[in-house]
Design a protein around this nucleic acid. Structure first.
Length: 451
DNA sequence: TCTGGGGTCCTAGGACCC
DNA sequence: TCTGGGGTCCTAGGACCC
């Protein structure tokens, strides 16, 4: 870490505004200008994204859906269409790659771009502002109306702080040399990595703003938040951040987990869930040509107590039978009678080739090995049926989206992006003329998924 | 009707090795 | 008779991010 600090505003951070909700409003004209909440629609769902109209009522990301319904009972609560979000995300990432070959996607709706060495006018704030506006305009054009906020600064930290200050639908350039003074008045929560726990620890020391942390002694910070995070936090408070934009980050783990509608005490049923999870996780391993050595399960009880159990094998594998078997054995170490709220399975410790096991560890044969049919406590999940917000097509009425579903009925609003104002009709859930479909294709969609 | 799902990174203790 | 010391791997838990 001896490379010099950047002296130019050459890092750009882009953040799509209320991304999931904005895609829904774009594709569902009757929801434009309305409160829209995207998230889990089950009993135990949480909010992924709230439209700005819903935020007026206090609805926020990560909030329990029950609370969101209480705050904004009239809002549209949708289950989410990840195919559509991925589609628009690919368009945005492809656009960013036209500006620089160093793009680091942080999630579907966020990315860093390294502008150094490109034709971006990084030395001229006025020109740079125009440049960012051209990028945002092109983004809106290609995504049919989504908006993004852009921050540009001398580091990842300042670019991200900039896009936060620019929200929604704006640009903020933080000029080199002004970092510490821009940061000073902000809450320490503005620094990425400072969550509720660190916030509380620092508040107990009387530190609330970034300025407070700038003035704090290093030893005090180390004592409170640790040997690694203390010095890091102090540096970030002064705007010192030399992290590079890295376009090729390799995955370190793959996992899958499910929260059940009701707590589960049936061990056999949980074991069959682990087999299903293992199958999906291994399919992803195989798609990426990877093999894993460590298998981990995660168990959450009704009272939110969370346990993990893991085992590292002598050799790497992508075999769902084997991963499932290890998962079930790990579950054997866990008391299940209090009721399980969440069960998950993950793999890590990747290798690019399988290794022969020198010996097979203790792996008892199970009776009824092939009986893995999954049924039981209401795993009414998407994919098995209709959910609010889903794209559907009807033989006679054409394309529309699910307005409501339940009690064997589905209500559909027949409208699309550019054809608003169609009729609303109800159908039986097993009406053969009605089916789930994927999102409509988009002109700027790149041929190959960027992944 | 409290609290998703997919990740990353850090800490700390014990085993084991030299 | 007190009980070195450092490095690496493994396990479990926890903070945090979107």
């Amino acid at each position: 870490m001896s490379f010099p600090a950047r002296t130019r505003a050459s890092i750009l951070h882009l953040d799509l505004d209320a991304f999931f909700a904005a895609v829904e409003q774009r594709d569902k004209p009757s929801l434009r200008g309305k409160a829209v909440v995207v998230g889990g629609v089950g009993r135990r769902g949480v909010v992924s994204t709230a439209s700005y109209e819903a935020r007026v009522f206090g609805v926020r990301s990560a909030m329990p859906a029950t609370e969101a319904r209480r705050l904004a009972p009239h809002a549209a609560f949708l289950g989410g269409r990840f195919e559509a979000y991925r589609q628009s995300s690919r368009i945005v990432m492809a656009l960013l790659h036209e500006f620089s070959d160093r793009v680091e996607a942080l999630s579907l709706d966020e990315a860093f771009v390294d502008l150094a060495g490109t034709d971006a006018p990084v030395a001229d704030p006025g020109e740079l502002h125009h440049y960012a506006e051209r990028l945002r305009a092109e983004l809106s054009r290609r995504t049919l109306g989504l908006t993004a906020s852009v921050g540009i600064g001398s580091s990842k930290l300042m670019a991200k702080i900039g896009s936060e200050l620019a929200k929604p639908n704006g640009v903020r350039i933080i000029e080199p040399g002004t970092e510490a003074e821009v940061l000073a008045p902000l809450s320490i929560r503005a620094i990425p990595g400072v969550g509720p726990v660190t916030h509380e620890k620092l508040a107990r020391l009387g530190l609330r703003t970034v300025a407070d942390v700038q003035q704090a002694s290093l030893s005090e910070l180390v004592r409170e938040v640790g040997q690694s995070w203390g010095p890091e936090l102090h540096a970030l408070a002064w705007g010192r951040d030399r992290r590079e934009v890295s376009s090729h980050r390799e995955a370190k783990s793959i996992s899958q987990e499910n929260t059940f509608e009701e707590d589960v005490t049936d061990r056999g049923w949980l074991e069959s869930r682990l087999d299903a999870d293992a199958a999906q996780v291994c399919a992803r391993l195989q798609r990426h040509g990877l093999f894993a050595r460590t298998i981990q399960i995660k168990v959450r009880l009704g009272d939110f107590t969370t346990w993990t159990r893991s085992r590292t094998l002598a050799g790497a594998t992508d075999d769902p039978e084997r991963v499932g078997r290890v998962g079930r054995e790990l579950l054997g170490q866990v008391e299940v009678s209090r009721g399980i709220r969440l069960l998950g399975l993950g793999v890590s410790g990747f290798a690019e080739a399988a290794q022969e096991e020198l010996f097979i560890e203790d792996e008892p044969e199970r009776a009824g090995e092939q009986d893995v049919s999954v049924q039981g406590p209401s795993l009414r999940r998407r994919g098995t049926g209709y959910w609010p917000g889903a794209d559907v097509e009807h033989e006679a009425f054409g394309r529309g989206w699910v307005w409501g579903a339940g009690l064997g009925r589905v209500t559909v609003r027949f409208e699309t992006r550019d054809a608003p104002g169609g009729p609303v009709r109800s159908f039986s859930e097993d009406d053969p003329d009605l089916r789930l479909v994927g999102p409509l294709p988009m002109e700027w969609e790149p041929a190959e998924p960027a992944l």
